[in-house]
Design a protein around this nucleic acid. Structure first.
Lengths: 184, 184
DNA sequence: CGGTACATGTAAGCAGTTACATGATTCT
DNA sequence: AGAATCATGTAACTGCTTACATGTACCG
């Protein structure tokens, strides 16, 4: 039940239309909670029905017409409630780790190329995060309101740093292996 | 499409019944691909129907009767194919990061306790991983067949290390904040 | 007036979660 | 015989993904 709250957060930060939200999810919020435009439109409908947000539009027509949504006080209250409520961390689910475990029994044939590709993708993502950090959080001045945003960005940077290091290490190990088939 | 391959991997490592698989997912494979017993039984049925695995049982009855599955050569081939096939990394989805971003606009009230709780949970998980490392991969001897398994375990250790550090840092930042309400 | 980009939506399907049901075995 | 545990399943639901549909505005 996180998507509605991701949308509420985005709308509190700045009232937007569905497509604007979609773009913002691609840029910033989507870095840790991705969503497609279909999910967003569906969820906007629900949030409006529940009285958490309100559409500002010249009423009548509905398709192709731009709608701008804003958060109502009930929505803001729900977001605050959700933020404070305890939630268990979800168990990790990572396909690459699973594939390496599978490679241990069926052989490492072919996985190296994809490890390299992932390393490249994570390296790019890391560079993107670091560019954002330099732009939005230059060293020296550190406004207290921005501390939380910076903290979240730093999680992204540290995670991508972890992946680039781990993938590099994995490629080293793979190169040192007797090559080809797995155990059994 | 990862669950069937997680199950195939587990079954290649060791033929098992549904419940045995469930337990092994709780202990080891589930550390990076969790699954409940309902998912596992459903998926075992599909895998059998597709001719990837075979049940060894005294035929007739079905409920309450223990079934042991083994992987057929088609299943092994499918697993090898899947392991080598390129797959894009899934965008991250983390609720705690989302909550912190929400806290930046609706206030940090109440989130600190859950950050502490998560720090505790991740600290325990890290300790569990390190215990496994000491038991299964003692320093010094390093059989080449085990290198891949160790690599995967190390990913778990490094990830939990990241979370404990980041959560500690987050709690420090939170304590240094003007307390209570967010921006706006 | 035809094409492209903008903007909002519908429908179908799949994967994962939660709650519940049922049979078999073992222990007292 | 009754209770606890082992073992296998069914059903309903929620959330996410993929593919497609429809309308509007603008540009040449």
């Amino acid at each position: 039940m996180s998507l509605p709250h991701a949308i509420l957060t985005a709308l509190v930060e700045k009232p937007s239309s569905g497509l604007e939200l979609t773009r913002r999810f691609d840029r910033s919020i989507g870095y840790f909670w991705s969503a497609t435009h279909q999910q967003i439109y569906r969820e906007l409908g629900k949030l409006e029905a529940e009285g958490y947000i309100r559409a500002l539009v010249a009423d009548q027509p509905t398709r192709g017409q731009k709608k701008r949504y804003e958060v109502l006080s009930e929505g803001r209250a729900e977001l605050a409630r959700w933020t404070a409520a305890p939630q268990d961390p979800k168990p990790m689910r990572d396909t690459m780790l699973l594939r390496l475990r599978a490679a241990a029994v069926v052989g490492t044939e072919g996985i190296e190329a994809d490890l390299r590709r992932h390393l490249d993708l994570h390296t790019r993502q890391l560079a993107e995060y670091e560019a954002i950090q330099e732009r939005d959080f230059p060293p020296g001045k550190d406004a207290p309101q921005d501390r939380l945003q910076h903290l979240v960005l730093r999680a992204g940077i540290d995670l991508e740093t972890f992946w680039t290091r781990w993938l590099t290490h994995a490629l080293e190990e793979l190169g040192r292996l007797p090559a080809g088939g797995g155990a059994n």
